[in-house]
Nucleic acid binder design. Structure first.
Lengths: 196, 196
DNA sequence: GTCTATAGGAAGATAGAC
DNA sequence: GTCTATCTTCCTATAGAC
């Protein structure tokens, strides 16, 4: 146990950087090797399950991060605005001001879609449920309406990341983060009703 | 010239189905061959530039579709609501009620990101500009505000597709399409100002 | 214009030395 | 725990018959 343990989190972070940038099919062992500084065989020593196991470890790491930095703040004490603010700050860091893609998007194409579909599905579900619960608790609005707003929030974040990747413009992402409170906790008038 | 011409649009459609589902890196010649019913060599006969040329043809085809079914209706005559309705119907068809992904998303990962970035960037730009022009023309609001609303519209569509692919739930996509008029042409009150 | 056959290389994965 | 060397499979792309 006195042997120096090479931080596995560093490795995971570097693997994640590859998967979120090029997707599952694009993440070749060569790229993963280069990104981590480890030879292919060394990666197989740490992840006997190969590339699939690496992506699963990355997804698990991101899931834990979601729990800690997004879901936990949403259910903490403090005003709803403060809790959303915590989440927004965490997302801003995780997505590097909108410049990095979401694994839930990049891993849902190609071979990854079949392998990780259940994991991706539950990640979205937990995120939406936590936001909807906050909306219900804070506004007392019906659960169906709260769920719609929560879906809109998550969808806006994901869309802003797609737009940022496609255009190089991260302003929409910043704007979405900033307007999360007004989207989720509007002062009055049901957003389902629109003017004549 | 009397030789029967095998519809190239059918081929393009089948190629597009592969690229939008698995991305550029995931689109192997085997999958493209199986999807089109043509052997690899036959695909190279039609697309001497190989896989890259196939994806470019698909992207050009989608770009032409965008011009015809999205951009043209937006600049046509008729009420703004009617024009947005035309666009929404076209998008609903193109994305198969939210069940299919957008090429601008799937082709922006991995090797495709470098190859198609400029094409993707301009596609987003034209789409947003056309929507912003409609907003300015219809509401007379400042161009900066119109552009924000246009970005929000595109971003919501993209995010809804990501969410649909991740969760299997296409209701948010349907809701986004339905609420495009209220998002882009709200009756009153600037959306940048939120209540105290 | 389509096919079979194949070249040449990169993919994921493993064996075994150190 | 990391490495070099290697295996097998699959990849993109081409040659040439029909």
């Amino acid at each position: 146990m006195p042997t120096i343990k090479v931080e596995p989190d560093d490795i995971i972070d570097r693997l994640m950087e590859v998967f979120r940038t090029v997707g599952y099919d694009g993440a070749t062992l060569s790229k993963l090797s280069k990104a981590t500084g480890l030879q292919r065989a060394s990666l197989y020593h740490r992840f006997p399950g190969g590339k699939k196991a690496m992506a699963e470890a990355v997804l698990a790491h991101a899931g834990a991060w979601l729990d800690t930095h997004v879901l936990a703040p949403l259910t903490s004490s403090g005003t709803p605005q403060a809790r959303l603010q915590k989440m927004a700050e965490a997302l801003d860091t995780f997505y590097v001001q909108g410049g990095k893609s979401c694994l839930l998007d990049s891993l849902s194409f190609g071979e990854g879609s079949a392998i990780f579909h259940e994991h991706i599905r539950t990640a979205f579900a937990h995120w939406i449920e936590a936001l909807a619960a906050l909306v219900v608790e804070s506004t007392g609005c019906p659960t169906a309406e709260a769920r719609r707003r929560a879906e809109d929030a998550v969808l806006s974040i994901q869309g802003a990341l797609v737009l940022a990747r496609g255009t190089g413009n991260t302003q929409p992402f910043q704007r979405v983060l900033k307007h999360l409170p007004s989207l989720l906790l509007p002062a009055r008038r049901s957003p389902t009703q629109r003017s004549p």
